Computed example of a mutant assay.
Amino acid sequence: MIVLANPRSDWSVLKPLLFQSIGQTLTMVLVTLVIGGFLGLVLGVILYGTRPGNLFENAVVYRVLDIIVNIVRPIPFIIFLAAMQPLTIVVVGTSIGTVAAIFPMVVMCTFATSRLVEQNLVPVDSGMIEAARAMGASKLTIIRTVLIPEALAPLILAYAFLFIGVLDMSAMAGYIGGGGLGNFAIAYGYQKFDQTVTWTAVIIMIVLVQVVQGLANAIAKRLLKRQQ
């Protein structure tokens, strides 16, 4: 029998915990997206640039980075958390808490972002890049003024997709005491057989995803209209 609601739920106690959990989730997600998103952008540009025939063509560098990304990306995050624990302790000083959860999230986000960035840069018209090179533009200038702007709309959509993945990682971080909505749903919902608490956390996460995806769609649509 499934219990749909727990009449003993005390929301005068749960409400402050819920708001605290929302704050922890937003902290983990935003810090991860800012740091991991930026590092992933840099790594993705390097992956794209070192591909055969591109700006920084280097088969050795590309192959090494490609292998590393392919090794890290498929690892389930809950296993990655456990595997990163020794390094997390060295870097952060602890393996428990929100800060300890952010470190492996940033690492995983960096590699995930790099592949998304690379895949969205590949379709950019090579003719535009060659034209910029013919005019004497430096490689970094081409990246900044041609490559990134041309791929900006799909990159924004890719980062919105990445937001969902990072939100999912933040939920799993509850297993190492990272807090957040995932921990709230497990500790006060699932473990106490309170579906109201569990679904409250689920609905909030759904709303967050819808808001971010909606904004990303609107921005990408406007950018695509300007490029036409």
Rank of each mutant, 00 (worst) to 15 (best):
M205Y: 00
V60Q: 12
I2V: 14
R63S: 15
F103Y: 15
G214T: 07
G180M: 05
Q228H: 10
I68G: 09
R8A: 08
S126T: 13
A158T: 14
M108H: 02
V45F: 09
D10M: 07
Q228Y: 03
G40N: 05
A185S: 14
G189H: 04
M28P: 13
G40A: 01
L167W: 04
Y175K: 03
K15I: 08
A137H: 07
L18E: 08
V124N: 07
S12E: 15
V34F: 05
C109M: 10
V99C: 04
A100D: 03
L30K: 00
P74V: 12
G178D: 06
L87C: 09
N217R: 13
S21A: 15
I164A: 14
G97K: 08
T110I: 12
D66G: 02
L55S: 10
Q191F: 12
R115Q: 09
I75E: 03
Y188R: 12
I204F: 15
P52N: 04
V90M: 09
L41E: 02
K221P: 00
P123I: 00
K192F: 09
L147Q: 01
T98R: 03
A100P: 08
L167P: 11
G178F: 07
L47P: 11
I102F: 09
V202T: 14
S170R: 10
E57L: 10
L215F: 09
M135Y: 03
A132N: 04
T196P: 01
L41Q: 05
V31L: 11
S9K: 01
T200K: 01
V117W: 11
L14R: 05
N217H: 11
Y190P: 02
P86G: 05
L81R: 05
I129F: 00
K15R: 09
I156E: 00
M105P: 11
